[in-house]
Amino acid sequence: MRDGQATGPALRPIAPNDLSRHLAVRNKLLRCIPKPELAVLQSMGTDVELKPRQVLHHWRLPMEYVYFLGSGLVSVSAKVEAGRFVEAWLVGSEGMIGSPCILAPDDPMPPHRRVVQVGGTALRIPVVAFLAALDELVVLRELILRYVNLVLFQTSQVGACNSLHSVKQRLARWLLVAANATDTSELPITHAVLAQLIGIRRASVSECLETFEQDGIIRNARAAISLVDRAQLEHLACSCSGLIQREYDRQIGRRLRG
């Protein structure tokens, strides 16, 4: 256990099952690169299963792997005090885990902690091999730099949101961003985890979600939240979720459409 967080079970490799069909279709970054570049990544990576609460990277420890998520949801959290972390940004099938390796490859102790919140799968690649390959994979390199730029925007937007907007707006924003990142309206997440990630009281989360359910916006179940009316949720949320999504579309989404 580190920083009060159990590491959970070790990542389990998945038997080969046409990796390109699974991850190239699901991970939006991998969908944007040419097949020869994808083949290089496949040759150096391993398809792994992600378990809820699995710590992919501990705060201030060396980062050994990058991950391209095919499914699931990972929170990247900043340490605010001993044993307490608050989410800085989310990563789903639209992105990757490993931005510090791109910006500062020689930093032995990158900040933030990365924890799986919704189980799924990912292509795991050793950092050393990935950085070496970027010299040759020119399309991927440009795309990754765009994605890192997007991460910087998302973190600044979330910081501004947390400073100025109400709990209800922030919670609605989180649900929308998480749903976009996972490409689903079913989020297997508890009230306690939401409170921890957003940095608010659990009672406040439960109160807001109860109001959302009464208004027919979501459906609450044990350890799960289902989005029923996204349009109404977008109306309740602040503008931050829309700004984040529009920036993603500007940086990366147009390549998917192209």
Rank of each mutant, 00 (worst) to 15 (best):
R2Y: 14
D3L: 10
D3K: 09
G4S: 09
Q5Y: 09
G8R: 14
G8A: 09
G8P: 04
P9K: 15
A10P: 04
A10I: 08
R12N: 08
I14G: 07
A15M: 05
N17F: 09
D18G: 13
A24W: 14
N27A: 03
N27K: 10
N27Y: 02
K28T: 07
C32A: 14
I33C: 10
P36M: 08
P36G: 06
L38W: 04
A39C: 02
V40A: 12
L41P: 00
M44I: 12
G45H: 03
E49N: 06
E49P: 03
K51Q: 13
R60S: 11
M63T: 08
M63W: 02
E64R: 15
E64H: 11
Y65W: 07
Y65F: 10
Y65T: 03
F68V: 03
L69N: 03
S71Y: 04
V76R: 12
S77V: 01
A78K: 08
A82C: 04
F85I: 03
E87T: 11
S93W: 08
E94M: 11
G95M: 00
G95Y: 06
G98F: 00
P100V: 10
M109Q: 07
P110L: 02
P111F: 09
P111S: 09
H112C: 04
V115F: 00
V115R: 10
A122N: 04
P126E: 11
A129P: 02
A132G: 13
A133P: 09
D135P: 02
E136N: 12
R141A: 15
E142N: 08
L143Y: 04
L143V: 11
L143W: 00
L143M: 08
I144D: 03
R146Y: 01
V148Y: 08
V148N: 08
L150G: 03
L152I: 07
F153H: 14
F153T: 13
T155H: 07
C161W: 12
S163G: 12
L164H: 15
H165F: 13
H165N: 12
S166Y: 13
S166W: 13
S166G: 07
V167N: 09
K168Q: 11
R173V: 11
L176D: 06
A178M: 02
N180Y: 10
N180T: 03
D183Q: 13
E186A: 10
I189N: 01
H191Q: 08
H191A: 15
L194P: 07
Q196P: 04
G199N: 06
G199F: 15
I200E: 07
R201D: 14
R202E: 11
C208H: 01
E210F: 01
T211G: 03
F212Q: 01
E213L: 00
G216F: 04
N220S: 14
N220Q: 15
S226T: 13
R230I: 15
Q232V: 07
L233I: 05
A237S: 15
C238Y: 05
S239L: 09
S239V: 13
G242E: 04
I244Y: 02
I244T: 05
Q245W: 05
Q245N: 05
E247H: 09
R250I: 01
Q251D: 00
Q251M: 09
L256W: 01
L256F: 01
L256E: 06
R257M: 04
R257E: 13
